[in-house]
């Protein structure tokens, strides 16, 4: 029963796939099946996709997850109605998502359920903290890395990363891309005082000086950074970006003469959408990046089968990743059998 014991040390865990078909669902099903006889009360939810337009709602095809008798799950009204298992409603949220309100229920029988969840971090944090009212020991979140989603899996204490052939059919490339995410997860947290100041700022780009005074740069996204370049470093060398970090932004900063003193602060690693090459060259030039919220990586799982049928050598891939990352790596296909 690899790494499941580790999970029991955390109150919340999210499982994140680096690409579709990297075996996130298998990993989730594996974790749930092992936890189902752990004697702990488990809750399951997901990060909702913000469904502003209808197409997104249609695209929110979520795989069905095995929910075991006695487990608690949180899903939208829409998905709740289409469930197969018998379950008892414990709570219904007052706020609504694009797929309806969120229903908290307890499984009476074991079967598959489509899981959807809150559309933002606040909602997810609420759900996780609310779970203790139902005697839940561990809340598992079906996570996602999405620029569109306002909810980040890093609000959980720990994460599992699912990677595999779907990300790249070349082991070297696959290891490189996975190592990149691993490096992002490993970014260190900013000091507490700065963290407290920035934690509730959800909009804009801010400069922070050495005395933790913050100045709004009055631009809504990093795309507009060139507009303020004249006054960029006047209010401090640290830049807090509430939204996403892009290639352009890192490329711009690395070419400034202050690069060695520059420190970017982001909410969490999922906000960094730069290409690995750009990220590493920013770091090499002396730039720093820190996060407000860091989360513990518990394990990495691999799916050596790609959706187009290509199969990588599982042992070879596992070894290559373990060498590079120094962390246990598991093949979801093998552990689930």
């Amino acid at each position: 029963m690899p790494f499941v014991k580790d999970i029991e040390n955390y109150k919340s865990l999210s499982i994140i796939g680096l690409e579709k078909n990297t075996g996130k669902t298998e990993c989730l099903n594996y974790v749930l099946s092992r936890l189902s006889d752990s004697g702990k009360t488990i809750a399951l939810t997901s990060i909702g996709i913000d469904g502003e337009n209808k197409d997104q709602v249609k695209q929110t095809h979520k795989p069905e997850i095995d929910v075991y008798q006695g487990m608690i799950f949180v899903t939208s009204e829409l998905h709740y109605k289409s469930r197969k298992l018998v379950s008892e409603i414990l709570d219904v949220s007052k706020q609504s998502t694009s797929l309806g309100r969120l229903v908290t229920a307890k499984a009476i029988t074991t079967d598959k359920v489509m899981i959807s969840g809150p559309a933002n971090n606040a909602g997810l944090i609420d759900i996780i903290s609310n779970m203790s009212n139902f005697g839940v020991d561990i809340t598992i979140v079906d996570g996602a890395l999405s620029r569109k989603s306002l909810a980040s899996p890093t609000v959980t204490e720990a994460i599992i990363l699912a990677t595999g052939a779907a990300l790249s059919s070349n082991i070297t490339q696959l290891v490189f891309k996975t190592k990149y995410v691993y490096d992002l997860i490993a970014l260190s947290e900013t000091e507490n005082q700065t963290k407290e100041i920035l934690f509730n700022i959800r909009d804009g780009i801010w400069a922070i000086d050495n005395n933790n005074n913050i100045t709004d740069l009055n631009i809504s996204s990093v795309m507009m950074i060139e507009r303020v370049k004249d006054r960029l470093f006047e209010a401090g060398n640290r830049i807090y970006v509430s939204g996403a970090i892009t290639d352009n932004f890192l490329n711009f900063l690395k070419n400034q003469k202050q690069i060695k003193e520059t420190e970017i602060i982001v909410r969490d690693f999922t906000r960094i959408f730069a290409q690995p090459e750009v990220f590493y060259s920013y770091i090499k030039r002396g730039g720093k990046i820190k996060v407000l919220q860091k989360t513990k990586l518990v394990a990495i799982t691999i799916n050596p089968v790609s959706p187009d049928g290509y199969i990588l050598n599982s042992e070879e891939l596992k070894k290559a990743l373990e060498e590079k990352l120094g962390l246990p790596v598991y093949d979801v296909k093998k552990i689930t059998n």
Binding site: V86, S87, E88, I89, L90, A105
Partner: peptide, 12 residues
């Protein structure tokens, strides 16, 4: 509440 559990939860 046919089972008289007095708990605000429900299913058929």
């Amino acid at each position: 509440d046919p089972n008289k559990s007095n708990i605000p939860s429900f299913y058929i």
